[in-house]
């Protein structure tokens, strides 16, 4: 085996960080609804792809700037998240059943995507797609850089919201003991609607990032589930920053495995890391 050049290693490191930040961004909403609403929302991935296709549609056909599509997608997805939580609460869906229900929802959204956009591969043409710049000998593609910035910003803002604001503290209190939170004035049902709306909005934002950098096809929905679940479980349920850090660690480990060993080994990385973490930290999950 030839040792790859430093430039190649650096480029791999960078692409690992970039894809890791997308794992983290996808994991953010998943972690919030899992840790704070006790829902394992598989539909989060389908929702992200729906967001990606909508971005694709509005940009390629509608001629909008990809970033501006968020002005339409974010409120629509927020409303969808609120409606979903309202239904979950109305029908008292248990954590285990949430897995089944959201799996069903995934299949429905997948079919919808396939029906509207067919199973063909779609790649968004946008002004950002061609933009790259160079730092030293390394290429930095703008779409990926945007993804990193968005993921870091959203994760940190969510962390600050939960850590420092009365609203966020009330959300954490309601997640731990809804009755007691209510006894002290927290409207925990409304906060759950808000959280679910936020999580769905984050799926929409992740969709934008998917559309910026990746070729879309309906079946791709399932390709992200395993590794993002690993990032969320390593990063900690309900933790807004953990999934991003874990996502980047996984992304970098995968990219290094590809560069140094073989691309075929990369998919093993996230699950080896997950098993390692679960074994050393059996109490936390």
């Amino acid at each position: 085996m030839n040792f790859p050049s430093w430039t190649l290693l650096g480029q791999s490191l960078l692409s690992g960080i970039f894809i890791g930040s997308l794992y983290g961004l996808l994991g953010l909403g998943l972690s919030l609804s899992w840790g704070m609403l006790r829902q394992i929302n598989l539909a989060h991935f389908a929702l992200a792809f729906l967001g990606a296709y909508l971005t694709f549609q509005l940009t390629s056909v509608g001629g909008m700037d990809p970033l501006l599509t968020l002005g339409l997608i974010a409120p629509a997805f927020f409303a969808f998240g609120v409606l979903m939580q309202w239904l979950f609460s109305r029908f008292s869906i248990s954590p285990f059943n949430s897995l089944l229900v959201t799996f069903g929802l995934t299949v429905i959204i997948e079919s919808l995507i396939q029906w509207i956009w067919t199973a063909d591969y779609r790649k968004m043409d946008s002004v950002y797609g061609e933009m790259k710049f160079k730092i030293g000998s390394l290429y930095v593609p703008l779409p990926e850089l945007l993804t990193l910035i968005i993921a870091v910003t959203l994760s940190l803002s969510t962390w600050a919201l939960l850590r420092y604001t009365d609203l966020g503290k009330a959300m954490r209190a309601a997640a731990e003991d809804p009755q007691i939170a209510a006894a002290f004035g927290v409207n925990e049902k409304r906060l759950a609607l808000l959280l679910s709306g936020l999580a769905a909005t984050f799926a929409g934002v992740a969709g934008l990032c998917l559309a910026l950098s990746y070729t879309l096809s309906p079946s791709q929905i399932y390709a992200w589930i395993g590794v993002v679940f690993a990032a969320v479980m390593i990063g900690g349920l309900g933790n807004p920053i953990g999934p991003l850090i874990a996502g980047i660690v996984i992304g970098v480990a995968e990219a290094m495995t590809m560069a140094l060993i073989s691309p075929a080994w990369a998919p093993l990385v996230s699950f080896s890391l997950l098993i390692l973490v679960l074994l050393t930290r059996a109490d936390k999950v």
Partner: peptide
Amino acid sequence: AIVPEGRRLLTTMSVQENLELGSY
């Protein structure tokens, strides 16, 4: 205001955060 049986503090949150919940 209630001081419930078994206390039911928010165990992962700080003492100050628990107290502040009271004044929500």
